[in-house]
């Protein structure tokens, strides 16, 4: 039972990650490989603040949102001067820079040793240290993100996003500021990605840089692509599928080490297969 709750918590964290990337990569057409970096920034911000300054959860969450928002604002203003495959390489670079900051800034992050002993979340003296209450908190944030993204993407802002991902120059000719819209979207996506980071740090109570690598970014991107790019419900199912896959492989008797690799092989194959489906571009299929 405990283990099932653990899986459900992980799935809900990945749903937030995937949906926030779906806004950036699916709706606005900016395929980003830096998402795990912002996830990590959320985790590290809350870890450092609650370890050194004993700040409560809501305060660290707000500061984490602010920091990842500020950082993504700067970073996207630079990266968005490029498009398509150059943009992906650029975000890959950002991911590597964030990772090497986490891994090498010893005085702040303790590098590869990680940060142990992060306290669990408590509200008004009520501690959420059992898994069920934590799952409820996660579900609250999942529904909040879902609601927010659903409204954002069906609003007029969402329409501009769809327009610019389909034809950037045409959207510009209608008097929309494409560059600014893209920066705003990227920043919202990165801010949302820091929420699961904050939750993850408090849940696991120990973080190290290996949870926030390029592979993690590729994994989040695969969830979004398998979920259907612009499909928020699709991200939910894809996250559940990809996280339960290794459990299923273990269930049929594969050893742990191979199951992990096999999961990646399977999602790699699905990724390639999806590209055949999307070969005309993501936009055409989404219509």
């Amino acid at each position: 039972m405990e283990y099932i709750l653990h899986l459900l918590i992980l799935i809900s964290l990945y749903i937030i990650l995937a949906q926030s990337l779906s806004l950036v990569a699916g709706f606005a057409g900016m395929i980003s490989l830096a998402h795990a970096g912002f996830y990590g920034i959320g985790a590290y911000t809350t870890a450092i603040l609650s370890l050194h300054f004993h700040l409560p959860f809501l305060v660290t969450l707000l500061i984490a949102l602010l920091i990842s928002g500020l950082l993504s604002l700067i970073v996207s203003a630079i990266a968005l001067r490029t498009v398509e495959d150059y943009f992906i390489i650029c975000t890959l670079g950002i991911q590597v820079i964030i990772f090497s900051l986490m891994n090498n800034w010893m005085s702040l992050t303790q590098g590869p040793l990680g940060l142990p002993g992060i306290p669990s979340i408590s509200f008004f003296g009520l501690s959420l240290d059992n898994k069920l209450s934590f799952l409820l908190l996660c579900l609250f944030f999942v529904s909040l993100t879902f609601f927010f993204l659903k409204n954002l993407t069906t609003s007029s802002f969402g329409t501009i996003l769809k327009a610019l991902s389909e034809d950037e120059i045409f959207t510009q000719s209608l008097g929309k500021n494409v560059y600014k819209t893209k920066i705003i979207t990227f920043t919202i996506g990165a801010m949302l990605a820091s929420i699961p980071g904050v939750l993850y740090a408090h849940y696991i109570s120990y973080i190290d840089p290996t949870s926030f690598t390029v592979d993690e970014s590729i994994f989040i991107l695969s969830i979004v692509i398998i979920g259907g790019m612009r499909n928020l419900w699709g991200s939910v199912f894809a996250a559940a599928f990809l996280l339960l896959l290794p459990e299923a492989l273990r269930f049929i008797g594969l050893p742990n080490s191979i199951a992990a690799n096999l999961r990646q092989i399977i999602y790699g194959i699905i990724l390639v297969a999806m590209m055949f489906k999307y070969s005309k571009g993501f936009v055409v299929n989404a219509r």
């Binding site: 495959d85 990646q264 790699g268 590209m275």
Partner: peptide
């Protein structure tokens, strides 16, 4: 008729498969 972007993601998927 795949675009370079689609090719890049396909190559990323293929890399994950081969590396594992």
């Amino acid at each position: 008729g795949a675009t370079p972007l689609i090719m890049l993601i396909a190559s990323l998927g293929l890399y994950v498969v081969l590396q594992n």
